[in-house]
Write a protein that binds this DNA or RNA. Structure first.
Length: 228
DNA sequence: TGCCAGGCCGGGT
DNA sequence: ACCCGGCATGGC
C-alpha cells in the first residue's frame, strides 16, 4: 500500500507543470458521451472532425441520434474510425439517454439524480460501453466521482512500478480512489493530467520519458520497465 | 512507411 | 478465467 500523500504529490507536480486541463472539452454533457465512444482507441483530432460533422447535421441530441439513419451516422463519424461499430454504439447510448431524459433536459438532470452504482451498471450493460467509456461518461458528463483509468494511466504507473503492467481496470481504479480524497474536480483534472503526460512522455514505444515532471516525485524509470 | 491513438467485443483455449 | 484478432481513420 502506497502512503497516503504520494498520489497528491504526483498531482501537484503535474498541475504545476501543465496547469488545470479544464476537461472534458465539449459544449454539453451529451457531447461528452458521444466523444467518449468516438475516442475509443482513437486519436482525439479525428474525433473532433466527427463531432463537428454531427453538430453540422444537428444530430448531437439524444432523440435525433437515436432515430438517425445508421448509414447517415456512419458517413458523419467516419473520420473517427471503427465507424460501423461506433455508429451502433452511439445509437444505443443515445436511445438510453433519450428514454431517461426529456428533449428539453439538455443538462441531463434526470440522469444526474440517479445513484452512481445504478448508472454505472446500466452503462456497462450497453454493448460497446466498457469500463473506461462508462467512467468517462460518469465523471465528465454526469458529475459522478469515479476515477477514469486508461491505457496511459496504466502505462505511466507500471513504468514507475506503482502497479503491475497487467493490472485489471478495477485494481488501478481502486489504487487511485483509495489513495485520494473523493473529489469530483480532483478526479477530473487528475485523469486529464495523466493523459497529458501520456501524450508527451509515455507513448507505447517511447524508450524513455525525459524531462517528465513525474521524475522528481517518482524517480526516472529504468531500462527494465520500458516496453508494454 | 509503419506505428500509433483518451477500447471493446467475441471466439478460442 | 485469460488471450487474441478484428475493428478503421488520419498524422507523423
Amino acid at each position: 500500500m502506497t502512503e497516503k500523500g504520494l498520489l497528491l504529490k504526483v498531482y501537484e507536480a503535474l498541475r504545476a507543470a501543465f496547469g488545470c486541463r479544464h476537461w472534458w472539452p465539449a459544449e454539453s454533457p451529451f457531447e461528452v458521451m458521444v466523444g467518449a465512444v468516438l475516442t475509443q482507441n482513437t486519436n482525439w483530432a479525428n474525433v473532433e472532425r466527427a463531432i463537428a460533422n454531427l453538430k453540422q447535421a444537428d444530430l448531437l441530441r439524444p432523440a435525433a441520434m437515436a432515430e438517425a439513419e445508421l448509414t447517415k451516422l456512419q458517413a458523419l463519424i467516419r473520420p473517427a474510425g471503427y465507424y460501423r461499430q461506433k455508429s451502433v454504439r452511439l445509437k444505443r447510448l443515445a436511445g438510453w439517454v433519450a428514454r431517461r431524459c426529456a428533449p428539453a433536459d439538455e443538462g441531463l438532470k434526470a440522469l444526474r439524480g440517479l445513484p452512481l452504482d445504478c448508472l454505472r451498471e446500466e452503462l456497462l450493460a450497453l454493448k460497446g460501453i466498457g469500463p473506461e467509456t462508462a467512467d468517462s461518461i460518469l465523471l465528465y458528463a454526469l458529475g459522478q466521482p469515479v476515477f477514469v483509468v486508461d491505457a496511459y494511466t496504466v502505462r505511466i504507473l507500471a513504468r514507475h512500478q506503482l502497479v503491475a503492467r497487467d493490472s485489471r481496470y478495477g485494481e488501478v481504479q481502486s489504487f487511485f480512489q483509495d489513495g485520494l480524497p473523493t473529489d469530483l474536480e480532483l478526479f477530473k483534472d487528475y485523469h486529464a493530467q495523466l493523459v497529458e503526460v501520456g501524450k508527451r512522455y509515455c507513448k507505447r514505444r517511447a524508450p524513455r520519458c525525459q524531462d517528465c515532471p513525474l521524475h522528481p516525485v517518482l524517480g526516472a524509470p529504468t531500462l527494465e520497465m520500458e516496453l508494454p
